[in-house]
Amino acid sequence: MIEEVCKNIFRITVPLPNNALSAVNTYLVKGDERSVLVDTGFDLPISSSVLRRALELLQVPPDRLDIFITHQHPDHAGAAYSIVAPGALAYSHCAPDGSSLDFIRFSFEEQERLVRKLLSAAEPTWKSHRVESEEKIFERHIISWPIPESGFKRVDEGDVISAGGYDFCCILTPGHCDTHTCLYDEKSGIFISGDHVLKDITPHIVDVNLEMKNLSRYLKSLKKITDLPVSSVMPAHGSIFTGLRERCEEIALHHEQRIKDIMTLIDCGNNTLGNIASNCIWNTRNVPWNELSVEMRIFAYGETYAHLSYMLNERLIEIVETDGQEIFYRA
């Protein structure tokens, strides 16, 4: 679907097959000389097909198109390599050599190792009783993406991307992802938020170990943009909305409540990652915990780990390792 959401800004909805998010919002900022496409979808033929058709209908030649990647997760950066024409730029907050700063830079096999380690920490018997332990957990396109041949053009805090009469300032917002960057045009008040602020769901904050501290960074990034004078928030998933401050406050309160809930669970004797996560309240669309797919449980464990890491950093809890298992207690 193509929709002009503001002058010279078109939302192109790209499907995410077999994914709970269903679709990603990409935004084309159409200019006279060059245009900029924000995000791209999975590394799947349907993504490039939908985008190429949209560019054709909007009369944007591929050789006059640059790309901006809000963050280097596969549903945002996956199709970048197939859309970028020779000589075009693919902007992203990345390493100076054009590679990723995020943990997703690791090979497919390394990412599998990380998620297996997380799953084994939560479910110590998982590897011995599940056939999947010797198979791939995720389809390749879910946790991998190819980098454009020319690499990414690095952007940093305060850099400006101009197109279609807009001057979008880059705002670094790590937390959901190391590389996450939002775009803000001060004159119009338009804020392209990527996955940093969503209206319909709470952004996914995950740690795969207790040293990552992604929730601490996310909450700091959330506070950073709360007071921006914004007329319209254009997120990567779900509805375009107004009221940035109110939504930021709602998200902060959500995490505050989750921390309280986890502390209550710990006080009641749910002291392991697996016990804590399985007793938290999740939006599983009425699917019982023991019937959730391994992928969904991994995401839940990762979110729980992010909150436990935050609580450890704030000295709210302490950790003891017993027989190779992490046990959490109130400090």
Rank of each mutant, 00 (worst) to 15 (best):
A121H: 03
K213E: 15
L118I: 05
E123F: 04
Q111N: 11
F106R: 05
T125L: 02
D159G: 12
F191M: 13
S221L: 14
G194K: 07
W126V: 05
K220G: 03
V160T: 13
D185E: 09
R113P: 00
M212S: 12
S107L: 02
C94T: 10
P174N: 08
S120Y: 00
I104V: 05
L172R: 15
P174H: 06
A85T: 01
E110N: 07
I147Y: 03
L215Q: 13
D159T: 08
S133L: 00
D97F: 03
Y184H: 10
C182R: 05
L101N: 07
I137K: 03
S133A: 12
Y218E: 08
E110K: 10
I142S: 02
F152H: 13
R154G: 07
T202S: 11
D97H: 02
A95F: 04
C182K: 06
K187I: 11
Y166E: 12
F103K: 00
A90I: 07
K199L: 15
D159V: 05
V197M: 11
H180G: 06
K127Y: 00
I137A: 02
E134Y: 04
K127W: 00
H141T: 04
A121C: 00
P86L: 10
T181K: 07
D178T: 14
G98P: 09
L183A: 12
T173H: 05
S107F: 00
L89C: 02
C94F: 03
H93I: 01
